[in-house]
């Protein structure tokens, strides 16, 4: 995948994520709608490739202003990743040299890897996660399970311990997937499945679309840099 293709794919996927979120806000409280209108309009401009430096720059300003409007992120980590993807895209458009353009998208790829690895390490360091108790608490009393029926999983400690270790192992070992294109492809499929399960069980649908938007940059990054080192 070339840099240009990765950049363009990221723009289209990011725009779709913005439109999906914007449409939800358009159906919500009246005070939130002007921000949603601005985001959806600009995101459509980004998707169509209309004056990318301007449309992405304006979308960046509107996104930051929206955080102020909501007095913080609306949906925590997914908002931060959305802003990160958009920032790196915009920087990759305005950077003065090819090196810095690629560095901007490479930074996004590195942060995407860190998003899994750090999340895995903090769980690995926590004895409650290693025993499965933390995941049990997520099901028992956290705000996330989408139905009361799902709370029953809190009573299956062995299953939760196994699931917790699977999640920890996947997240911690994710950087190793960069060693080869085929392992990265497999890891991204597993990662997408991980986000889909989180969306189904915990209602975190925004994470699916925004993390997916980061994948082209990671695919390009692996092929442009690490593939030359490890795939001979």
């Amino acid at each position: 995948m070339t840099f240009d293709t990765a950049q363009r794919l990221t723009e289209i996927l990011l725009a779709l994520a913005f439109v999906q979120q914007g449409l939800e806000h358009l159906a919500g409280p009246r005070r939130d709608r002007p921000w949603a209108v601005a985001q959806v309009t600009l995101a459509l401009g980004v998707a169509w490739g209309v004056a990318p430096v301007l449309s992405e720059g304006l979308l960046l300003l509107v996104s930051i202003a929206t955080i102020r409007h909501f007095r913080g992120p609306y949906n925590g980590g997914s908002d931060r990743m959305r802003l990160l993807v958009l920032s790196c895209l915009w920087l990759s458009r305005v950077a003065p040299t090819v090196f810095w353009q690629r560095a901007a998208l490479g930074y996004l790829a590195a942060q995407l890897v860190l998003s899994y690895t750090i999340a895995g390490w903090v769980k690995l360091a926590n004895p409650d996660w290693r025993s499965g108790r933390a995941l049990g608490d997520v099901f028992a009393f956290s705000v996330y399970p989408v139905s009361e029926a799902l709370r029953a999983w809190a009573d299956a400690p062995r299953v939760l311990r196994a699931v917790a270790w699977l999640a920890i192992a996947f997240e911690v070992l994710f950087p190793l997937a960069l060693l080869h294109g085929s392992t990265l492809a497999a890891a991204l499929v597993v990662a997408l499945a991980f986000h889909l399960i989180n969306a189904a069980v915990f209602g975190l649908n925004r994470f699916v679309w925004i993390w997916l938007a980061g994948y082209p940059s990671l695919w390009w990054f692996q092929q442009a840099t690490l593939a030359h080192l490890f795939e001979r």
């Binding site: 930051i64 955080i67 102020r68 980590g77 908002d79 931060r80 990743m81 802003l83 990160l84 920032s87 942060q111 860190l114 998003s115 750090i118 999340a119 903090v122 769980k123 926590n126 409650d128 933390a134 608490d137 997520v138 009393f141 956290s142 705000v143």
Partner: peptide, 22 residues
């Protein structure tokens, strides 16, 4: 102050399961 946390995120998702408000 609103932009920087997104540029340098912490990614410490679910590092501990604290009190859950409803």
């Amino acid at each position: 102050t609103l932009w920087l946390p997104a540029l340098i995120p912490s990614w410490r998702f679910f590092d501990r399961i604290g009190p859950a408000p409803s």
